[in-house]
Simulated assay, not measured.
Amino acid sequence: MKRRILLSLAGLAPLAARAQGGANGWTPNGPVRLVVPFAPGGSQDVLGRLLAQAAGPILGTTIVVENRAGAGGVLGGETVARAAPDGQTILLATAGQLTIAKAIGRRLPYDPITDFTPILYLSDSPVALLAAPQLNVADAPALIRLAQGAPQPLPYASTGIGTNTHLIMEDLKVRARLNVEHVPYRGAAAAFNDLQAGRIALMFVSVPSVLAASGAQFKVVAVTSRERFPATADVPTLIEAGVPDFEASIWTGLSAPAGTPAPIVARLAEAFRAAMATDLVKSRLDGLGVTPNGADGAAFGAMLRQDLDRWTRVAAPLHIQLD
């Protein structure tokens, strides 16, 4: 942050001048580096690579995906926060390194709001609420009633302490007055096994994980999107199940270092919004559990602040300690 403040106006002048050239305000000076703060192979990495492939020709350059996994995405966030604000290094942003990271008290080498320039709100992905087959519940209202009246807390799984699947369930726990207790896992696979065996009663998990678990023995009772998700159109939302305004998303956005000039931000937003609309990307979105968003940087920034406020309120009574 201090380094950013010390940048001189003289140093920014050539950058601003370059930003006036090229179609629609800016042309990249060589390959653009898209930092994906996760290991290769996951749904976020796949989305990032699809977007890089589709947006590169629109920008007239190559977009190189750089996987910077570690510390829940914080290493990738730090890479971009410390990069020059010239449009050549951008972040596939998620809550893991921005809003949830700060909400749970993780020590960050950057400020997730002030050290980045929001470019574009790319997409949303709901999570699904699952019930163990042994519970014999037909739908989400039945599961909620069971959890509300349980004489002993029902164990629920998450994919780790302080993850979105943990915080989403804690939010539902308070809002629907559920008698449940947290059992963290290191990933979805082991949690799935214990859910099917009845050792875990319920859990939230990403829609892609549900879509990949064909033949698994559990009940998908709800999703957390405002509207039903196309790939699971027969599954109602939690709002339909009677939890007013309950919505949660594993969102993805695009961010640049703080101080990136407006013409560069506008050009990147234009290119990636167009990339989301290509057949290459659209044909894969349902399988990735993703719905396109496309809101501009101002709307994305407002969402970030709201998301940070929400998860800070949810996490505060949990006293999470990770560092």
Rank of each mutant, 00 (worst) to 15 (best):
A271P: 07
P236S: 11
A269W: 01
R284I: 00
V281E: 07
V290F: 08
R226W: 08
L280R: 02
E247R: 14
T291W: 12
S255H: 04
R273H: 01
A241Q: 14
R284M: 05
V235H: 10
A277N: 09
E240G: 12
V290L: 06
A233T: 08
G253Y: 06
T232V: 11
A222S: 15
G289T: 13
G253F: 06
V243M: 12
A248S: 07
V290Q: 04
I264R: 12
E270C: 06
T278S: 03
I264P: 01
V223H: 11
V290D: 09
L288P: 12
T232C: 08
M276N: 11
T260R: 05
A256K: 06
K282W: 05
V221F: 02
M276L: 15
V265M: 05
W251Y: 11
D279H: 04
R226H: 11
V220P: 05
D286H: 08
P230A: 01
A271Q: 08
F229P: 03
W251P: 12
V243Y: 12
G242F: 13
V290C: 07
I264M: 06
P261K: 05
E247F: 13
D234C: 00
T237F: 14
W251Q: 05
P261D: 03
E227T: 14
E270F: 04
R228N: 10
F229D: 04
E247I: 15
E270L: 07
R273L: 00
G259R: 02
F229Y: 01
I239A: 15
A241V: 08
D286S: 14
I264K: 10
A258S: 05
T252W: 01
A233W: 00
G287W: 07
L285V: 05
A266L: 09
A222D: 11
G259A: 06
T252K: 02
A248Y: 01
I239Y: 09
G259M: 05
A241G: 11
S225H: 13
A248L: 02
G287P: 10
S225G: 15
A274D: 00
L268D: 00
V223S: 12
F229L: 00
P261H: 00
T224C: 04
W251A: 09
I250G: 04
I264V: 12
T278E: 02
A248H: 04
E240A: 15
L288V: 09
E227H: 09
I264F: 07
R228E: 15
A262D: 11
P257A: 07
A262V: 14
L238D: 08
D286N: 15
P263Y: 00
I239C: 09
F272M: 09
P236N: 12
G287V: 03
A275C: 06
V223T: 15
S283N: 06
A275S: 07
A248W: 05
D245S: 13
D286R: 08
R228A: 10
L280P: 04
T224H: 04
L285M: 02
A271V: 01
L238W: 08
I239P: 10
E270R: 10
G287E: 12
T291P: 03
R228H: 10
S225D: 15
R267V: 02
P230I: 08
A266G: 09
A277K: 07
L285W: 01
T260D: 05
A222I: 12
A271E: 01
F229N: 03
T237S: 14
S283Y: 02
I250T: 09
R226C: 00
P261L: 02
P257M: 02
